[in-house]
C-alpha cells in the first residue's frame, strides 16, 4: 500500500523483476478489502495514506485475525513511530527513503519467517545451531561463540541463501542502526568467520559487496 505513484511503481517493478508477484493498491480501504479476499505472503504498508491511517489498516487487518507479515514504511525514523508501528502489529519497519535492496531483503526475510514454524534447531549444511542451549556445532565439533556471534549466525542462517543488510543485522543484534564510517558489523562477521570457517574449505558466510552478507551452503 503506497500512495506515492513513483515510489509505488518502482517498488512494484523491482519486486516483479526479482520474481515476486506483486499487487499495488493506493488507498487504505482498498488495502483492507484486498487483504480480506486474497492471501499474501507479506504486505508493505505506508503509514501515510490518503484516506485512513496506516495504523488503522493494521488494526483492521489484525482484527480480522489476518496474520500476514506487515512491513511498515514511514517518513520519519522516530522511536515513537517505530514503537507504535510494532505495537500495532507490524513485523518490521523501514524509513523512507530506503534502498530497494534493503526493502527486498527485509520482505524476503519476513516472508520466510512467516512460513516457518518456530524451531528449536537450525540446521544447514555442516552447521547446526541449538536455539535452546545456544550451542553451535560444525560437523559435530563444538564451536565456542559469544552471544553476539551466536545471534549473528542465527539471523544469517534463518535467512540462508539470501542477503541480509548490515542495517538488518545491526537492528537485530543491538536494536539500533549504527550510522557511521566504522563498519561495526564487519569485525563481528570476521570473528565469526574465523570461528566457523577456519580449517574448512567451504566458506559459509559470504560478503555481498556494498549491501551485506549472506549465509550459503554449496
Amino acid at each position: 500500500m503506497e500512495d506515492d505513484a513513483l515510489l509505488g511503481k518502482s517498488v512494484q517493478r523491482g519486486l516483479s523483476d526479482a520474481g515476486h508477484e506483486c499487487e499495488w493498491v493506493t488507498d487504505g480501504e482498498e488495502a483492507v478489502r484486498h487483504a480480506r479476499f486474497a492471501s499474501y505472503d507479506v504486505i508493505v504498508l505506508d503509514l501515510m495514506l490518503p484516506d485512513i491511517s496506516g495504523f488503522e489498516v493494521l488494526r483492521q487487518l489484525r482484527g480480522d485475525k489476518n496474520e500476514t507479515p506487515v512491513l511498515v514504511l514511514t517518513a520519519l525514523g522516530s522511536v515513537d513511530e517505530r514503537v507504535n508501528g510494532l505495537n500495532a502489529g507490524a513485523d518490521d519497519y523501514l524509513v523512507k527513503p530506503f534502498a530497494f535492496t534493503e526493502l527486498a531483503a527485509r520482505l524476503e526475510a519476513l516472508a520466510r519467517r512467516a512460513g516457518k514454524a518456530i524451531k528449536t534447531e537450525l540446521h544447514d549444511g555442516p552447521l547446526m545451531l541449538d536455539l535452546r542451549t545456544r550451542r553451535a556445532t560444525r560437523d559435530n565439533t563444538n564451536i565456542e561463540l559469544t552471544p553476539t556471534e551466536f545471534g549473528l549466525l542465527e539471523f544469517l542462517m534463518q535467512n540462508a541463501n539470501h542477503t541480509v543488510t548490515r542495517r538488518m543485522l545491526c537492528e537485530h543484534l543491538w536494536d539500533a542502526n549504527w550510522e557511521g564510517v566504522t563498519n561495526v558489523i564487519e569485525v563481528h562477521i570476521n570473528r565469526l568467520r574465523a570461528k566457523i570457517d577456519r580449517g574448512f574449505d567451504e566458506r559459509l558466510i559470504h560478503t555481498v559487496r556494498g549491501i551485506g552478507y549472506a549465509f550459503r551452503t554449496e
Binding site: T148, C170, W174, D175, A176, T182, V184, V187, H188, N190
Partner: peptide
C-alpha cells in the same frame, strides 16, 4: 552495555 558489545569487535580487531 549494548554499545560495548557492538564496538567490542572493532576494539579487538
Amino acid at each position: 552495555e549494548k554499545a560495548m558489545d557492538m564496538f567490542g569487535g572493532v576494539a579487538e580487531f
